[in-house]
Simulated scan of single mutants.
Amino acid sequence: MTNIMKNSEDVNTIGFSIVAYAGDARSDLVDSLKCAKDGKFEEAHRLVVEAEKSINLAHNIQTKMLTKEASGENLTLSFIMAHGQDTLMTTMLLKDQMDTILDLYERVFVLEKKLEVE
C-alpha cells in the first residue's frame, strides 16, 4: 500500500470519527431543545453537557490532524473530512447558541406560570 493510499484512508477514518462525535453532539443539542420546550430544563442542561463532551472529542481529533499538517505532513483532503469539518462547525455554532435559547425558554416558562396564577 502506498503512503498516499494509507494517508487517504487515515484521513477518511479521522473524518468519520469527527462526523460521528459531532453528530452525537448535534443529536443531544436537538434533544435538549425539545426538553426545554417541554419545560424539562434540568434534562436540557444535562444534554448540553453531554454534547460538549462529544464536541470536545471531535475537536481533539481535529486538532491532532491540524498538528500533523502544521508539522509538514502532507494530508489528503477528502469529502468525508470536509463533511466532518462542516458537521463539527455547525454543531459548535448550535452549542454556542444553546445557552441563550435555553435561557429564553426558561424565561418564557416562568412568565407563562405567572400569567396562569394571575
Score class of each variant (00 low, 15 high):
73 E>Q: 12
103 D>I: 10
9 E>Y: 14
34 K>Q: 09
49 V>R: 10
47 L>K: 04
25 A>G: 06
95 K>C: 02
110 V>T: 08
40 K>E: 06
76 T>P: 09
100 T>E: 05
37 K>V: 09
74 N>E: 11
91 T>C: 00
99 D>A: 15
86 D>V: 05
86 D>I: 06
100 T>L: 06
58 A>G: 10
96 D>P: 01
64 K>S: 09
62 Q>A: 03
97 Q>I: 12
7 N>F: 14
100 T>H: 04
87 T>M: 11
83 H>C: 11
66 L>I: 13
82 A>N: 08
77 L>T: 08
36 A>V: 11
13 T>K: 12
70 A>N: 03
19 V>N: 08
93 L>I: 10
42 E>N: 14
25 A>M: 12
16 F>H: 00
28 D>P: 09
51 A>E: 04
106 E>P: 03
2 T>W: 13
84 G>N: 00
98 M>S: 01
81 M>I: 13
80 I>Q: 08
26 R>T: 08
43 E>V: 03
11 V>S: 09
95 K>H: 05
99 D>G: 13
10 D>F: 15
70 A>S: 06
27 S>E: 09
80 I>K: 07
41 F>K: 04
79 F>C: 08
52 E>C: 05
29 L>K: 00
55 I>E: 00
41 F>G: 01
118 E>F: 15
76 T>I: 10
73 E>H: 06
56 N>A: 08
68 K>E: 11
44 A>F: 09
70 A>E: 07
14 I>M: 01
33 L>Q: 07
80 I>F: 11
35 C>H: 11
77 L>A: 13
37 K>I: 04
16 F>W: 06
